[in-house]
Design a protein around this nucleic acid. Sequence first.
DNA 1: TTCTAAATTAGAATAAAATTCTTTAAATAC
DNA 2: GTATTTAAAGAATTTTATTCTAATTTAGAA
Lengths: 150, 150
Amino acid sequence: MEQIDDIDLQLLNILHDNSKYTVKELAKMVNLSPSPVFERIKRLENNGYIKKYIALLDAEKLNRGFIVFCNIKLKQHDRNIGNQFVSDIMKIEEVVECYNISGDYDFLMKVSAKDMKHYQDFVFNKLGSVESIGSTQSTFVMSEIKNLYG
Amino acid sequence: MEQIDDIDLQLLNILHDNSKYTVKELAKMVNLSPSPVFERIKRLENNGYIKKYIALLDAEKLNRGFIVFCNIKLKQHDRNIGNQFVSDIMKIEEVVECYNISGDYDFLMKVSAKDMKHYQDFVFNKLGSVESIGSTQSTFVMSEIKNLYG
DNA sequence: TTCTAAATTAGAATAAAATTCTTTAAATAC
DNA sequence: GTATTTAAAGAATTTTATTCTAATTTAGAA
């Protein structure tokens, strides 16, 4: 696999924070002309260093500002139960992230809801109908301190 | 504050997943001409529904594919200790997210490292020099199941 | 060191997209 | 019903992305 240099890394860091700079602006920042900057970015995209470009939305304005980390234990630990859980979880829009983890629980999910009422509804009606779940434990976010993706 | 309609919501959902569509492409998707789509997006930006545009990078390729959720208890719960903790944490690059949470611990951090060795070094040398920390508990991510920002 | 070849850059030229502007249509209030 | 406001369409313009060619730099071999 291709190796990246310091200028590539600079470009990645800049674009990771703001992908709306023009190549001309980026060129000035890294002391190059637009052409090589353009080519470097295309190469970083093609080689998979840049996966995609997205817009970050305001969760509060979209009624999704209530964040909960929800730990999950499965009923049993066979492959079918696990696959069923993953398949079910993928369809639930309130679940914005999900990880298979070490420790007392099997999965950690980040859940995004409007408020406590909405979260309660989510736990009862959505998680409640996922058969593979044995038990859950909710940790509520009181405030967001740092988020490089927020 | 302005109210958004169904087409705005469609645009937000599309851009949240891929912000590289052209206005012309977006126009076709929502059955409008480019001009109103352009104006709607500008309005959504100006009204704060869209916070920013970013590039998503490949953590594995950038030697940051080892993810750990790290729970933190502070030594004491006064404002000075809390502010000092927040200030310290903001400077540590391995900490990509941090939340003030309910429950047994005070904070939950998402940490991004190259591997276990790097994480160990992070815990000893970086967290180890944050005076406000009383205790920590690490939960290792074995695999990422779902991530709307990944 | 000097020559050669490969890779990288700069700058101009072109193509495509964003942005603006004017006209038209639709919705709402009166 | 008409007047007024709002939103949309389509054309015109500006800006940006993208391509291309020539010049420069870099790395390696003689």
